Simulated scan of single mutants.
Amino acid sequence: MEPGNIVEFVGVQKTYDGRTVVIENLSLSVRQGEFLTLLGGSGSGKTTTLMMLAGFETPTRGHILVKGKPIEHLPPHRRGIGVVFQNYALFPHMTVAQNLAYPLRMRKRSREEIQSKVGKAIEMVRLEGMQNRRPSELSGGQQQRVALARALVFEPDLVLMDEPLGALDKTLREHMQYEIKQIHRELGVTMVYVTHDQSEALAMSDRIAIFERGAVAQIASPQELYEQPASVFVAGFIGENNILSGRSEGTDDSGRGRVLLDCGRTVRMRSADGFAEAGRPLKIAVRPEHLVVGSAARDRLNQCEGKIADTTYLGDHLRALVDIGGGQTMVVRKPLLDFARPPVIGEKILIGWNEGDGRVFA
């Protein structure tokens, strides 16, 4: 086990029926004290990975190490891991204080220690005065705070969270993201968090592991994933991206790669990977915020003319879908001030970007 890691998955496979592989040869490390998010769509394997670490699922093959020791055969209550579920999983017949005391009583802590730790946990999640209420008397956000406090009250080294904010409204969800991140910073506890929400993962994580069909497509910091995706899948999954198909036309005199897009326009990109073989199929990815429109586009190396296919007003900015031909569309997302006037459907528009504003994938 590498120094600095608290968890390691080593060649882990999971199948439920012996035929369909849910997790395939997973090797994944979690660093001590980090906030790692497992991000992916439905069926990608992220929740199964978390449940194997928690002890509610057993690997078909491979090993899971915590602090260097295999734990795959230990029952959940002997792993010393805190777990927070989406449905809170609070005991409905117990008060807040009783729910928080439960993990401590199971560990046979003294009455004085239980009272002290429960009091501190209630303060930590700011539920003072609510210790005698039952879960049915709390809001969704308050119940989630209790669930979080219960996972932390016995001071575990590792806390797992399975889509814990999925049932909350947008405003409360964003507030709880901040609260969880603050608690993480204050306690220094290692957190492994599962979500399918990209913006949530970007906002909260030290690192993100993107799952695709039972394997990790890329694991990196939010900034690296966003700016340097390792594959077309990652480029399209993290944030909004324009993925355009084309073919290589080799490189120009300055070493820039030339791509003939399916719309018939040739563009030049800084990355020369994959350009050696003329005619080779390529994809390019350009973020909507890197695009400029109208007169500003004439100053860019790459230019595409298209027609407005749809517009969406988003308050501080406008999102426009532009048909550039050849069955391809591009999304432009700009402040309203960037448009001389609000664009209308069917109107022609010029889009521009520079060679370093995107990524190329063979």
Rank of each mutant, 00 (worst) to 15 (best):
L187W: 08
V96K: 12
S42H: 03
H93K: 08
P156N: 00
E174K: 12
T60Q: 01
A362R: 09
L202Q: 13
E227P: 13
E240R: 13
S136F: 09
H73Y: 15
D157Q: 11
M330E: 03
E174W: 05
G188I: 07
R268Y: 13
D357R: 04
T15M: 02
Q98L: 03
R107M: 01
R333S: 14
K283Q: 08
N354Q: 07
E240H: 14
Y102C: 09
D323G: 03
P156Y: 02
R247A: 10
I122K: 03
P342G: 03
I71L: 09
E212M: 01
V267R: 05
D316N: 14
G18H: 13
K120I: 06
T37D: 11
D310C: 10
V22E: 00
L350C: 05
V66R: 01
M1R: 08
G140W: 13
C304K: 06
V30C: 01
V232T: 15
K307T: 15
P164R: 01
A320C: 15
F154C: 11
S295G: 03
Q13R: 13
M94P: 14
L244T: 05
R300S: 06
L74N: 14
M191E: 00
G188S: 14
C263V: 12
E24W: 14
D252S: 04
V360T: 09
L127R: 10
G119P: 11
V118C: 04
V293M: 07
E174V: 14
L90M: 07
A220K: 08
L36M: 06
Q228S: 15
E200I: 02
Q86P: 10
S248D: 07
S139R: 01
L39I: 11
M161L: 04
